[in-house]
Nucleic acid binder design. Structure first.
Lengths: 195, 195
DNA sequence: CAATTTTTTGACCACACGGTCAAAGAATAC
DNA sequence: GTATTCTTTGACCGTGTGGTCAAAAAATTG
């Protein structure tokens, strides 16, 4: 019988290909027409198949969107993570900020998806989103032998919000110089951090 | 005949009261269950009337939501505007930041509505949202006889994004000290502005 | 009181949504 | 080749959506 996939089964090559295709299609859809436009019918149509086929590869529409979300997040985390790891501790916050803006500027589809997801209902991951930067900030001060200064949570919050704003503006106006804006932000952050 | 309202007719007292009630109801609905939950049926139910009655007072569901949005924005602008007007030019950006965080912290329903609306589809008002602060920043530097320094658009963007993040965090965790966070932001902003 | 206007109801419509499922079509295995 | 499994289709279902409208109920007017 044409049973639904079980989650732990090894995926065949072609099934994996379909899943990848659907994820990619969904990212494009969300990026260009917003979260609300990512309906089953539109995803299916954009992928050139029918709703039923989509639901053969994913348990639900939410699962498709979640997979797309996870894919984008993985790529972002990998990219930024590499940049942070390559930087000395006291420059890690700056590296984080620069790469975050850089990656999202270079990948507008991913940027739109991240921003769309960020603001979508609920988002209990709000704390998780800011925590990594807060940790970098603590470590940066420690590496310079400074006592814990300004509240890292607040500093991470401010920086994170500013990054979102810069990226959003860049999406709105491709002529906007996000790189220079990121430098201004880095200067403000480091001044506050190492004051 | 029970004709639909024309937009320029003088509203009767009771009609105005109904409109106010519906606006208030909608704000509460959006604040507590998100934009998507503000459907005609739910608005009507929450107000204790039927869908038809809602559409007698407003041309469409979008008109109800738009009125709620406008109401919240008016209150916010009035409050922040007064605080800004009462401050000397070189302290106007700080006043703006403090009152923005203050008002939204004191009025969580309005805050949720503003944030929900901010991120909802399209929002071509993105530039309009940042422009007032940018103007204050330019004026602040001028009032101290300083030449135009760091890009006001970028500074306004960073500050605005940070305000959003602080307010969002405060909504998430009512124990969070938004006031102190706002002070940290003000310090960063003024340092960058008057460097 | 009756006449008129304002407001509300509740049934109804068309449509888009997520999801189900038997049957048909393609691949693959043997 | 046949048998078996994987994949896709397309009709169908239930639900919620925004919106319309004739008729009834309130309120107001004279």
């Amino acid at each position: 019988m044409a049973g639904r996939r079980t989650e732990d089964r090894r995926l065949s090559f072609i099934e994996q290909a379909r899943r990848d295709q659907l994820v990619e299609t969904t990212i494009g859809l969300v990026a260009e027409h917003g979260y609300a436009a990512a309906s089953l019918a539109r995803i299916a149509q954009a992928a050139g198949i029918t709703k039923g086929a989509v639901l053969y590869h994913f348990a639900s529409k939410d699962a498709v969107v979640a997979a797309a979300h996870a894919h984008v997040l993985d790529a972002l985390v990998a990219d930024v993570g590499a940049a942070v790891d390559a930087a000395p501790p006291d420059q890690a916050p700056a590296a984080y900020t620069r790469r975050m803006v850089g990656y999202l500027t270079e990948n507008p589809h991913h940027a739109r998806m991240v921003i769309e997801a960020m603001t979508a209902d609920g988002r209990p991951d709000a704390e998780a989103r800011r925590e990594p930067l807060a940790a970098l900030l603590r470590r940066a001060r420690g590496s310079r032998g400074l006592p814990p200064g300004p509240d890292p949570r607040t500093l991470a919050l401010i920086t994170g919000g500013a990054i979102d704003a810069i990226v959003t503006e860049r999406l709105r106006d491709p002529g906007y110089d996000a790189r220079t804006a990121a430098e201004a932000l880095v200067t403000m952050l480091e001044t506050a951090l190492f004051a």
